[in-house]
């Protein structure tokens, strides 16, 4: 089922949601790259909210234990710094080295080369598939529209 995705659109926001991965309510995706090894990245919606990144750093050492909800680092945009939360329990096994040179990949290729880090572990049961995440987005976008009209 690789490379399949669903098309999502609500209000003026549209995106493709790859079906080969899980999603968290905090707008991260988790993709099993090797058995038990999960790549974590921002969804396109998250990058849209964060704006252009200028710098990021991780505050946990490689091979340290992390839990869902642990702050593993931060990402700096022009307007604000945002904590990076881990969406799963496991062992933090390193950041995407490509981001050191090309941080704009986070925004330009969020589902591909713009992944953030890898955790060896197990996603919690709350993580959802692409269809489930589409419902999460519906709620998030409706909340935002309600606030900005």
């Amino acid at each position: 089922m690789e490379n399949k995705s669903i098309q999502y659109k609500r209000s003026r926001f549209s995106t493709r949601l790859p079906s080969d991965r899980l999603y968290s309510a905090s707008h991260f995706w988790l993709k099993e790259a090797q058995p038990g090894e999960w790549r974590v990245g921002f969804t396109k919606f998250a990058t849209r909210i964060l704006g252009e990144p200028v710098e990021l750093d991780f505050e946990v050492e490689a091979q340290s234990q992390v839990r869902a909800g642990t702050i593993v680092g931060w990402i700096e945009g022009f307007k604000a710094v945002t904590d990076l939360y881990c969406p799963l329990d496991g062992c933090f096994s390193g950041a995407n080295p490509e981001l050191d040179e090309e941080i704009c990949l986070i925004q330009n290729d969020p589902y591909g080369r713009g992944w953030l880090y890898v955790v060896d572990g197990t996603p919690p049961a709350e993580c959802v598939d692409a269809d489930g995440y589409a419902k999460v987005l519906d709620g998030a976008i409706d909340d935002m529209m309600g606030k900005s009209t």
Partner: peptide, 24 residues
């Protein structure tokens, strides 16, 4: 602004675009 894809924000009570193609 909306037609040109501007990301609108609340700026001192006004709806204004923070960016279009990206700040940089």
């Amino acid at each position: 602004h909306v037609d040109f894809g501007g990301r609108m924000v609340d700026f001192s009570g006004w709806s204004l675009p923070i960016s279009f193609a990206g700040i940089t």
